[in-house]
Write a protein that binds this DNA or RNA. Structure first.
Lengths: 336, 336
DNA sequence: TCCGCAGTCTATAACGTTGTAGGAAGAACG
DNA sequence: CGTTCTTCCTACAACGTTATAGACTGCGGA
């Protein structure tokens, strides 16, 4: 059906390799020959067969991106940024959803279906440090997120501790001293929750404010509903607070809603800050102060690092850990 | 480096075709032979090369999904649903972002890079009916969305007119008569905006309520900010209204925010309904009534239809237009 | 005049799989 | 006892590309 390189070669009166050379911008071709080939290409609507190309060259031009789910805005915006960064390099992105489930994450790493891609950007949510060895797969892999540190692969991440400390400092600078946290994970040390809680504690300590466990609200998944529920529970305990640090924006938005229902005014009675700088944070009522964790930078860096590893597979280069720059974004929810 | 089918054949003492047969569950194989092959596969960590498979079989097992941008929640949730539907069929999804730009959409259709996929789910935002002929590409394509009707391909869409009518009826049933619309597109007849506005007018007419152009607020893109701006402009005109129909959820949420800033209570002073049933609509304050347009059904149907076209390429089957079932979701923003 | 050397091109062999055609061995049948 | 039919397996030719090795120009320098 579709024209092959052979058809073009015949139509142009050259060998198939010459056609291949033209298609790949090989330098030493007479302008005249090139012209004839391109005319034939045009005429026959020729377009190289990708499977054959991949088979011969061993590259597919596709990157895999594995995230928990696109319905979580953070990952949707991350995927957006990754696709754009990949496109700038002429690469496509194939997206896998793991649901944040450890078993499915491990299964994905073992799966032969990754054959379709040249490498993988992997953002686990269920796996933890003890699963690090499973990352030693036979192909280029760049780790995203904060579930595993010190693993065998390159790792692009955000400055969770420092950024959370900056968020807390921001609230402290507004004169708030009883700062509640929404979204902590019981006993977690690494992972976004653990690291951000650590940043919170660091900030309190530096400011000489005592840490009060009663102000910490726990949740499982970081969905909006959980932020609301956690806040309801916090209010039910009767503990007094004048600020809330939502460990991500969706939690903060859910919590904000419950605060408003309960009659508290934001930021006057309670100041609120989130983490992620989702698009949505700009349009909530009030607009939500937050941390911009450098998502675009993360996406670009991750794609660049992965592309580098793909180009240079054998390289014994030690795994790198790269952290993006963050930024405190002040909006209405923490206005003075 | 990696083991090939030849290595396995040698290790198992059979021909390569027998290995291939085992890998593809060909029926007539002696249990004993099968066992030996599988042992060799295990031993050598063999996994079939996808590029070679694709080259030989002409199928890649990958579907393309082209959407404007994943940062728009509707498309992120659609992509989520599509990936899940594809996974159920053992297919992968490669996502392209067009930015809703007509030129990029047209370029995508002409691009040879689609070679990587067996077919495309295409959700244009910039193209319109006059571009329909450009959809006649040489490979399986299923159209999504409401920009083009009567084109040369299968089309999976929602019941925009009926659903918008139901949304309006819902407001009317609450005794509202002065219903504003946020998000109309000047002069548009098809497209989500045009169709939903039509549904609104149909409902008014059936109820004997006169159509008042002063109640229609226009926007360009359906981002949150535009909903807010449109509502501000509407309020500035001084027109009186007791309900708002946001042509999608993000517009409704933006409008709701401005209404609240202006001191209006929802739903008491103004009832609000949206369209899309985003996750977010469940957690706004108040929770947002909306239309569930059957997104999951759309994704599943679209993948099924595309898979069918791929399996049966030659089929002269006429293009089908399939509409998903919708549902009015009543929440606080239109409570009695 | 001859050699070497860029520049341009070609023939042919891969890449790793699946499809086609057919062969060997035994069972079923007349 | 031959013939036909299953069942199981094999050899070999594709699929459409890129890589390798080498051939053929003409031209400048020895």
């Amino acid at each position: 059906m579709a024209a092959t390189i052979r058809d073009v070669a015949q139509a142009a009166g050259v060998s198939i390799k010459t056609v291949s050379n033209v298609m790949n911008d090989y330098p030493h071709i007479r302008p005249d020959t090139k012209r004839r080939v391109l005319d034939a290409v045009e005429l026959l609507h020729y377009s190289p067969n990708q499977s054959a190309r991949s088979l011969r060259s061993g590259k597919t031009g596709v990157l895999g991106l594995a995230v928990p789910e696109l319905s979580l805005s953070y990952f949707a915006e991350l995927a957006d940024a990754v696709i754009q960064a990949a496109e700038a390099r002429g690469l496509k992105v194939l997206i896998e959803q793991t649901g944040g489930d450890r078993d499915r994450e491990l299964e994905l790493l073992a799966s032969p279906r990754l054959q379709l891609t040249d490498g993988l950007l992997f953002s686990p949510l269920g796996m933890a440090n003890e699963d690090a060895e499973n990352l030693s797969v036979g192909f280029p892999l760049v780790l995203l997120g904060e579930r595993i540190f010190g693993g065998p692969t390159d790792h692009v991440t955000m400055r969770n501790v420092e950024a959370a400390r900056a968020a807390t400092d921001h609230l402290l600078s507004k004169g708030r001293r009883r700062i509640a946290v929404v979204g902590a994970h019981e006993g977690e040390v690494i992972g976004s929750a653990g690291l951000r809680l650590q940043g919170y504690r660091d900030a309190l300590e530096a400011a000489g404010v005592p840490y009060n466990p009663a102000l910490i609200a726990h949740t499982t998944l970081w969905h909006r509903a959980n932020g609301a529920t956690a806040m309801r529970e916090l209010l039910a305990t009767g503990v007094d607070f004048d600020a809330v640090f939502g460990l991500n924006d969706t939690l903060a938005l859910g919590a904000m809603r419950v605060l408003q229902e309960s009659g508290r005014r934001i930021p006057r009675d309670v100041a609120v800050i989130g983490f992620d700088d989702l698009d949505e944070a700009q349009y909530s009522l009030p607009t939500l102060s937050t941390i911009d964790p450098g998502r675009t930078e993360i996406a670009e860096t991750a794609v660049a690092v992965l592309a580098e590893r793909i180009a240079d597979r054998r390289s014994g280069l030690a795994p790198r850990e790269i952290q993006a720059q963050f930024r405190v974004v002040e909006r209405e929810s923490t206005a003075s």
